[in-house]
Amino acid sequence: MINIVVALLSEARPVIKHYGLVLQPEWRGFPVYAGNGLRLVVSGVGKVLAAAATAFLAGAARAQHGPWLNIGIAGHSSLPIGAITFASKITDRVSGRNWYPPQVVKMPGTGVHVATHDQPVLHYPESVACDMEAAAFYVSATRFVSGELAQCCKIISDNAQSHIDHITPNFVADLIGDNLHEIDNAVQALRSLVEAADHIHVDAIDVNQYSARWHFTTAQKVQLQETLRKALVRGSAEMLDAEQWHYCHNAKNVLAEIDRYLKSLPVTL
């Protein structure tokens, strides 16, 4: 599941339409749209709302492992209106802190330094894209996933020649709509990482069969999980069936028996 965070409904609309996302009325707090392996939350403008909406989506959807994408508009001194960029460096202008989202997959457009401000920017610093959410989004998203899986896509909406006063909801929707192909490339690139990330993640092995039969202390449960992981890697899925150790009197016996069995297996790579 890919999680998308946008500040404005006008930014969201083309994405919602393109992917056929549907409003999820049961979600209270932020509007959430979902469908086709994507979830999109509309955060509202600014750092506080961006961080809150990201955490909201992560918590409510238990979306810990999916990639995250922040899509939005930004100002830049020289890049043309409509240019699509991604954040290779993010700075929170207030704290001065920097983050560098690792670029493992190809993101659309050119990499830019995105500076997140508390207020709209009227004087553009050189070679820096100015937005109002990226830093907060990134900090919040990387509480749930590693940085490779949290990326920001920014489309230039204003620059030194064309200031923010021309920005309207329809204009924003058009900017995003014109870049849907590139945005989709980013989504697909992140999807390719999902597989790798899923492969790394291993759900806790279900040891209920074991704990229903014997009493395991917390430390013994950890040991059991680790021993069963090793058994699975070494091709002994049948070890998950606790019945085979029916003759054991307690958890300690069980662990010793599994260990003995593992040691009897030939070690291969």
Binding site: P102, V104, T142, S146, G147, E148, L193, A196, A197, I200
Partner: peptide, 9 residues
């Protein structure tokens, strides 16, 4: 930074 994954990188 902590929020990095060696394997993905």
């Amino acid at each position: 930074p902590k929020a990095q994954n060696f394997r993905l990188q």
